[in-house]
Simulated scan of single mutants.
Amino acid sequence: MITMKDIIRDGHPTLRQTAKEVPLPASDEDKQILQEMVEYLKNSQDPELAEKYDLRPGIGLAAPQINISKRMIAVHVEDEKGKQHTYALFNPKIVSHSVERSYLTSGEGCLSVDRSIPGYVPRYARIRVKATDIDGNEVDLRLKGLLSIVFQHEIDHLNGIMFYDHIDQENPFKVPENAIPIE
């Protein structure tokens, strides 16, 4: 079971590396790791389990955050309409994106970053992601809103990019041009 002590912190070199593609079909070991990443997110969102195991609530997790430099992400999030989405993916790739941007009005946070970093993080409003799920099926997702932002945040981790790299250093609360605010 993954706990907070397994999550590496900002400044760790693995967080700045480009993660390696996962050879497919995925090994049982890689599937197990991905399954545990999803379990962490589910447990972290359950107040009783989060307290019992001292888990910080998260909605996305990338393998580099647990010091595994492989292209694997887990997402467990409720969208703006209250619908639950759970993904466990190998080798996710953004294959296309909108010109239009979006950003979270509350800013972004990260399980690997222990401090609050205020500012708007410009993201694409809509993205299309291709990946392979935990069962070996090809998936082709069209995402918008919060889901799009979470996926971009996690895929950035696979490329050694942290969310705060996107914040305008001169003016952190500068509203990105042509952008949809997401509450």
Rank of each mutant, 00 (worst) to 15 (best):
I2H: 09
I2N: 10
I2F: 13
D6N: 14
I7V: 05
I7L: 02
H12D: 14
P13H: 06
T14N: 14
L15K: 02
Q17N: 12
T18P: 10
A19D: 06
V22N: 07
P23E: 13
P23G: 06
P25T: 05
A26T: 02
A26L: 01
A26R: 04
S27T: 01
E29D: 13
E29W: 14
D30C: 03
D30W: 06
I33F: 07
I33Y: 07
I33K: 09
L34A: 05
Q35W: 09
E36G: 11
E36C: 00
V38F: 11
E39G: 14
L41D: 02
L41W: 01
K42C: 10
K42P: 13
N43W: 15
N43F: 15
S44G: 06
S44H: 05
L49E: 15
L49S: 13
L49A: 15
A50I: 03
Y53I: 10
D54V: 10
D54H: 10
D54Q: 13
R56G: 00
G58E: 00
G58S: 04
G58W: 02
G60Y: 05
G60K: 01
A62L: 05
A62R: 01
Q65S: 09
I66M: 14
N67F: 04
N67K: 11
S69D: 01
M72G: 05
M72T: 03
A74L: 04
H76T: 12
D79F: 04
E80R: 09
E80W: 07
K81R: 06
K81L: 14
G82I: 06
K83L: 12
K83C: 00
H85L: 14
H85V: 11
H85F: 13
A88K: 04
L89D: 03
L89S: 04
N91D: 02
H97N: 12
V99Q: 14
V99A: 12
E100F: 10
E100L: 12
R101A: 11
R101W: 11
S102Y: 07
S102I: 11
Y103E: 09
L104S: 11
L104M: 11
E108W: 03
C110D: 15
S112W: 05
S112A: 01
V113D: 00
D114L: 15
D114E: 13
R115K: 15
S116Y: 14
G119S: 08
G119H: 06
Y120F: 07
Y120V: 02
Y120E: 06
V121H: 04
P122L: 04
R123P: 02
R123L: 01
Y124P: 05
R126L: 12
R128G: 09
A131W: 02
A131K: 03
T132Q: 09
D135E: 12
G136H: 00
E138H: 10
V139W: 09
D140P: 09
L141V: 04
R142H: 03
L143I: 09
I149W: 01
V150H: 06
Q152I: 03
E154A: 07
L158M: 06
L158Q: 02
N159C: 08
G160A: 01
G160H: 02
G160R: 00
I161T: 15
Y164A: 09
H166D: 04
I167H: 06
I167D: 08
I167S: 09
I167V: 07
D168W: 06
D168V: 05
F173W: 09
P176W: 00
P176V: 02
E177T: 10
I182T: 08
I182Q: 08
